[in-house]
Design a protein around this nucleic acid. Structure first.
Length: 194
DNA sequence: CTCTCGATGTTCT
DNA sequence: GAACATCGAGAGG
């Protein structure tokens, strides 16, 4: 299990370092695992794409807290997103987990996705469906939790990491839309978009 | 394979 | 009341 110190770093570093790590979810006696292949950084009140840019609210409160906690929220009336809080207490920042590559117990993930064999984890909302992640996990401590946490996986070389603008933030300022704060593993077929 | 379009509910104005 | 860090079904190539 990754320690708190891993998350207490600059958000862009954490976003890149999370690539190749193993996301683990316990469902009863079964353990779902998947390799993280795509992330996005949301950094501080100055980032107009970050939820925290509108100030601290009950919804975004977790992002203002200590690093290493899960920030789970609901969008579009039907989808959950999984983020991990980074940096220091009082500075709102998080990394969105956008996609992963199924490792163990893939059949259970497919079942959670209502039988969808393709596109099991290649999208933030799909990942949450496959892993049964919902608001009940919001605020859980990923450095101590028994239901959801992250472990070391594969080493990903810097040359294998691709940087792109973030997805789905048309409402943000131009400078924030253009920021290359989306990271994914080159040539991995599980990323959410080409 | 690609594209379009509508569902859905929480949050904030 | 509007916007929203999306997805999947269905139509067409």
């Amino acid at each position: 299990m990754l320690s708190r110190a891993f998350y207490q770093n600059p958000t862009l570093d954490v976003a890149k370092n999370l690539l190749g790590k193993k996301l683990i979810r316990r469902i009863g006696n079964n353990f779902l695992t998947a390799l993280i292949v795509e992330t996005e950084a949301y950094i501080g009140a100055e980032d107009s794409a970050c939820h925290a840019s509108k100030g601290k609210t009950p919804r975004t409160e977790v992002m203002f807290g200590e690093a290493g906690y899960a920030y789970v929220y609901f969008v579009y009336g039907m989808h959950y997103m999984l983020n991990v809080v980074t940096e220091t207490k009082g500075f709102p920042a998080a990394v969105l987990i956008r996609a992963a590559e199924p490792l163990e117990n893939r059949p259970i993930m497919v079942k959670n996705r209502k039988g969808q064999e393709k596109h099991v984890c290649n999208g933030p909302a799909r990942l949450c469906q496959a892993f049964l992640i919902n608001k009940s996990l919001n605020g859980n401590d990923l450095t101590a939790d028994k239901e959801l946490w992250i472990e070391n996986g594969q080493e990903i070389a810097n040359s294998e990491i691709v940087s792109k603008p973030r997805v789905g933030i048309d409402y943000a300022d131009a400078k924030d839309r253009e920021a290359l704060w989306r990271f994914y593993i080159r040539n991995n077929s599980n990323v959410s978009k080409k």
